[in-house]
Computed example of a mutant assay.
Amino acid sequence: MLGFCHLFAGIVIGLIIYKITDQRSAVIACGFGAILPDLIDKPLGHFILADSLNSGRIYAHTLLMLSIFVIIGLYYWKKKSSLSILAVSAGISSHIVLDEVWKSPTTLLWPFNGPFETSNFESYFTTFAVKEVLSVSEWVFAIMSILVLIVMYKDKIKLFARLSPHIEKSYPISQIFLMIVGFTYIMYGVNRHYHDDIVIGAVAILGGLGLLYGMKEKEIDDDLLSSHLNAAKR
């Protein structure tokens, strides 16, 4: 999967965690965790270790890496009552699932199942950049990720506060659009036997449902806050 697909999935998972736990930091933390494996492994594998491995799925795509974050996250949660690092772990988990790393048990179970497999990519970063720019789904996921973050942090940045009401009004349209994109990708993937398109479609549909849940809850919270403020004024 490409970067913004991972980011969007992580943000949606973080939004759901936030609605359950009321810890808003989970949104950013989970989104960061969702792209962290690539932030580590792509430069490391395709640049620093290009002559030996030349693979973008190495250390940060392993269960060992995930386990370390979970252990640290549990400790941090116990000491600070913060789910931030566990949310990063949730993001890493979503990345591993979307990349279907279990299909490469050598990577998933490293170092217990032997060394990493080598790959052969030429001009990886150029190819990656072109795919990002030309991918319709990546533009959709990028825009939706930005819109969610604007709404979630509208009380932190003045520009976000001005934009947020307009974005929130357009959420139903955005969610319908996500569903249409998702079903389109799934149908195209099924007809063409493109597995990645099916996964992208599933992310779009599930992401739309996640936003529907998260934003609906937020609207309820805002209504309750407004009612309390009005009552206080009286």
Results as ranks from 00 to 15, higher is better:
His228Arg: 14
Leu109Thr: 07
Ser94Tyr: 08
Pro37Ile: 02
Met215Cys: 05
Thr62Met: 03
Ser174Arg: 03
Glu168Trp: 03
Phe160Trp: 04
Leu229Ser: 11
Ile96Gln: 05
Asp155Met: 05
Phe183Ala: 13
Arg162Trp: 09
Ile58Gln: 02
Ala232Pro: 09
Glu122Gly: 14
His95Leu: 13
Ile71Tyr: 08
Ala87Gly: 11
Ala87Cys: 13
Gly33His: 07
Asp197Pro: 05
Ile186Gln: 04
Ile92Tyr: 03
Ile220Ser: 13
Val199Lys: 06
Phe183Ser: 13
Ser145Ala: 06
Leu147Ser: 01
His46Glu: 10
Ile85Ala: 07
Ile40Tyr: 05
Lys216Met: 13
Leu212Ile: 10
Leu49Asp: 12
Ala204Asn: 03
Thr127Phe: 11
Ile13Leu: 10
Asn191Glu: 09
Val136Pro: 02
Leu229Phe: 09
Val203His: 04
Asn54Trp: 07
Ile58Val: 15
Tyr188Trp: 11
Phe47Pro: 01
Ala29Cys: 14
Ile40Ala: 09
Pro115His: 12
Ala232Tyr: 14
Leu229Thr: 09
Ile167His: 00
Ile143Trp: 00
Lys19Asp: 03
Ile167Asn: 00
Gly182Phe: 03
Ile11Tyr: 02
Asn230Leu: 10
Tyr213Asn: 08
Val133Asn: 04
Val27Tyr: 00
Asp38Thr: 06
Gln175Ile: 15
Thr118Asn: 15
Tyr75Ser: 14
Ser84Glu: 13
Ala34Ser: 15
Leu39Ala: 15
Ala50Gly: 06
Asp99Val: 10
Ala142Phe: 00
Trp110Asp: 01
Asn230Ile: 08
Val203Ala: 02
Ile167Met: 01
Ile200Met: 06
Val130Leu: 13
Phe116Ile: 09
Trp102Cys: 05
Tyr59Asp: 03
Ile28His: 07
Ala29Ser: 14
Leu147Pro: 00
Ile180Thr: 15
Ile11Phe: 02
Phe128His: 11
Lys169Asn: 14
